[in-house]
Structure formats: structure tokens, C-alpha cells
Amino acid sequence: MLKRPERLTLLGVVLWALRIGIVAGVVVGAWATLSSGGLSGGTWITLLTAGLSQGAIYALIALGYTLVYGVLLMINFAHGEVFMLGAFSGMFVANALLSADGFLVTYPLLGLLGVFAAAMLTSMLVALVLERVAYRPLRRAPRLVPLITAIGASLFLQYTAFGMFGSRTRRYPPVELLSGRVDIFGFSFQRIEIITIVAALVLMALLFYFVERTRTGRAMRAVSEDKDVAALMGINVDRTIVITFAIGGLLAGAAGVLYSLLFNRVDFGMGILPGIKAFTAAVLGGIGSVTGAVVGGILIGILENVGPSLLLFGLGVPSPNQLRDVVAFSVLVLVLIFRPTGLFGRKENV
């Protein structure tokens, strides 16, 4: 593929104007907010922890995107729905455990593990079915075909959930262990936020270990580098791809439970926005890079929680938090326009 040369064009000027405008906007907005002193330190801490916990969840989902993109060079648009279905099944198990003479109440830890297991298993199954039915037949198709299929699959799964589970927003049953606040270093945090961060870190650590230290993990990395060469070296590419989807599914399922506990809701459309934001995170960190997905996820979480208040409060914009999604989408757009390889990504011809 021949590279486009660099030259000074109208386009170049527009992009530079955009860069300058954004930097100026950020600086002005932040300065206005901080100098107005309208938001207390406590508020910032709250926003920051919210950002960290949500970011951790995005990271878990982003890992699924980045792993699949690494091996298949495709965007698994339906990954948000994998996340959503995990959340639902976790909810059903939680409700069941709660009603069956309060198993969840008597043995909360075991019960929660069961909920997580159910969610992670469901998500994994959905991911595997997706791979087998929708993606594998299209391995050799031109680029856009798998993307369109993924969009179709995403739509299909959403409305399957709608048909099966209804449009009403549900919630997880309250769990003693997870509610309330906890004090660390004199600051008060929501317990669920801390638990989310810890749980996500544990899972990410497990993933790191798996990818770096095990044979299968090595195989995954080899397939990401070069599918054909990996096959020549004796790696079962199909099996590796299946495992990649499975892992992505497991992580998404866990994320589903954490998300539902954090936001206290489950509904059939819950995967759309987190899915896109997690994808943004993967791109921000460098799609294909595991570290990138984690860093990207946390960054996105923080940016969308802290950003609106930081940038818009001082400028007197009403309801800045309505625009938190705009922050995420803007990051997506800007990263893809200006630095598509992201922070840790490989140099690739975009």
C-alpha cells in the first residue's frame, strides 16, 4: 500500500486549527472551572473514584475488543451485547439465589461468586456462538463485511434480550456486602467502587499472566503478529481464535456484573454506550495492545467523569454531565483522526 505523502494542504490547515481549538478549549475551560472554586476537593475525589471504577469496567470490556482485533483485525461490534447478556444472566442467578432461602444473604461471598460465574459463563458462550456463526464464515471476506455482520449481530442480540427479557429496566438485588461506604485515608468511598476496582485489577492481573506466561497466551500473541506464520509454526489458529473470544467473553461477563452493581440497573440497551466507550478505550490505548486497553479504559473513565465538570462548569454550561458521553465520543473521534495507533499501538497503516 503506497503511503500518502505529507504536504501543506487546506486539510492540513483545518486539522491544525482543530488541534489548536481543542487545546485552547480545554485550557480555558479547566482554568475557568478551577479558578472559580465552585467545586470542592471532595467533589473532585468523588468524580475521580467514579472515573476509576467505571474506567476499570471499561478496561475489562476493552480487553475483549483489543484481543479480538489483535487476532482477527476486526472490530467485534457486538461485544457490548456480550457484556449485556452476562449482566442479565448474573441478575437472574442473583435473584434466584436471593429467593431460594436467601443463599445470597447467608453466604454472600459464595453467592456472588456464583453470580459472577454465571455471568462470565454466559458471556463466554455468547462470544463463542458469535465467533462460530457470524464471524468464522467471513474470515476471508473484504474488510467491511465482518464489520457489517458485527453490527447486525449487535442489533440482533439487543433485541433478543428485549424480546426475552422485556424493556423494563431491572436491577440486581441489594447485597449487604457491597453496599455502603468505606473509609480509606480519611476519605469516604462507595464500597462498590472500591470492590469494582479491586476485582477488575485481579482479573486484569490474571489476564496478564495468561497472555505473557502460558503457551496459549503465547499462541495468541503469535497469531496477532502474523496469522499465517503462526499457522506454519504449528499453532492451531482456529482454536486460538476461539480461546481469544472466550477470554474476551469472560472478562465482559464480569464487567457486566460490576457495571450493573455500580449503576444499579440492567436493561437490554445497556451494552451500546459502554461498548462504544470501551472500544474508544481500546483505540486510545492502541488497538491490539493489552496494556493499552487497560490504560485507555481508565483514562476514558476518568475523562468522562471529570471532564465535563472540569471543562464546562467554569464556562457556565448547564447540566455538563449530560455531555459526558460527548467527551467519550470526542476522544474517539480525535484519537482516530490524529493518532489512530493510540498510545501503545503498533505502527500500522491506517
Binding site: 462504544i276 464546562l312 447540566s319 455531555l323 473521534v333 482516530l336 491506517v350
Partner: peptide, 28 residues
């Protein structure tokens, strides 16, 4: 988006569409 290829182009335009939707409905 002139320099972007297939799937990235799709996602960026999706981002634009969503930004438009949110802005149109926003209080800001």
C-alpha cells in the same frame, strides 16, 4: 476523516452521529 480506512471511518462517523444526537438534545 479523509485519511481513514474502512472500519475506522465507520466508527468515527458513528461518533459524529452520536455527538450530534447528544448535542441536539442537550441543555447546553
Amino acid at each position: 476523516v479523509l485519511r481513514l480506512r474502512g472500519d475506522y471511518l465507520a466508527i468515527v462517523t458513528l461518533g459524529f452521529g452520536e455527538i450530534a444526537r447528544i448535542l441536539f438534545g442537550s441543555d447546553a
